[in-house]
């Protein structure tokens, strides 16, 4: 194509189109850049920092940074892997992630990233913060214990469902997902068919009464690491 440009990721030249982000170009070329808050159906916000790569030597979130011709990107260096591990580690200790009884286990993107990175135990002290469960909605549950503040639910509700059910509120350690209802999720316009109910990467926003329907062995990341589908398309 006439408008195609060339970038380099970890020494490998790949073709890209100027309107793509680094993440999109990498995906198309079969190079997996780990990510958590990013989702192909949602506008990227560069919030979780998992997809940070070195772009001409400077750290950039691959999900928001557009490609430029000749860009040199480092994705799988030891330093970047360590940075990503640190982020995942912090997410584990700042929430209450009890994988052993979580219905998302096996299909959870946070867990899958930790598996991919070979994390055996977090290096930071566990906070065991006090968090709430909002089960007021008849069909959807919000378990703040498992929230990683990716804001996918916020964006999905606005961008895909044409609603405004969720919102990020607070600052710093107090930051959490709030709902635009009088009291709780049950008072909002949320419906079980909303995309916002299915794009949560972890077990925070889940549809009720479907937990554990998929047997162990057939869950998303039981057999192959997260990102394998992208790498599988590598030519």
């Amino acid at each position: 194509m006439s408008d195609s440009i060339t970038i380099t990721i970890d020494g490998k030249e790949i073709e890209a189109r100027p309107e793509q982000t680094i993440l999109e170009a990498a995906d198309a070329a079969g190079v997996y850049i780990p990510r958590l808050c990013s989702h192909p159906d949602l506008k990227p916000i560069g919030s979780c920092r998992v997809c940070v790569v070195l772009c001409d030597g400077r750290p950039q979130a691959a999900c928001v940074k557009p490609v430029m011709d000749g860009m040199v990107i480092e994705n799988e260096t030891p330093a970047i892997l360590q940075h990503r591990k640190n982020i995942i580690d912090m997410m584990f200790v700042e929430g209450n992630h009890f994988c052993m009884f979580c219905e998302k286990s096996g299909s959870c993107e946070l867990q899958a990233l930790a598996y991919r990175f070979g994390i055996t135990a977090p290096q930071y002290p566990f906070q065991f913060p006090e968090k709430e469960i909002d089960a007021s909605h008849p069909d959807v549950m919000l378990d703040h214990n498992r929230c990683v503040m990716c804001a996918r639910c916020v964006r999905a509700s606005q961008e895909l469902d044409g609603k405004n059910v969720f919102q990020s509120i607070g600052r710093g350690f107090e930051r959490k997902i709030g709902v635009n209802g009088e009291r709780a999720l049950g008072d909002t316009e949320m419906e079980a068919t909303d995309r916002a109910a299915e794009l949560c990467p972890v077990g925070c926003v889940v549809k009720k009464r479907v937990g554990f329907a998929t047997p162990i062995g057939r869950r998303d990341y039981d057999a192959a690491p997260i990102g394998s589908n992208i790498e599988g398309e590598r030519s």
Partner: peptide, 8 residues
């Protein structure tokens, strides 16, 4: 906790 989690 939600009831469907309990057996696990």
């Amino acid at each position: 906790r939600p009831y469907w989690e309990v057996p696990v």
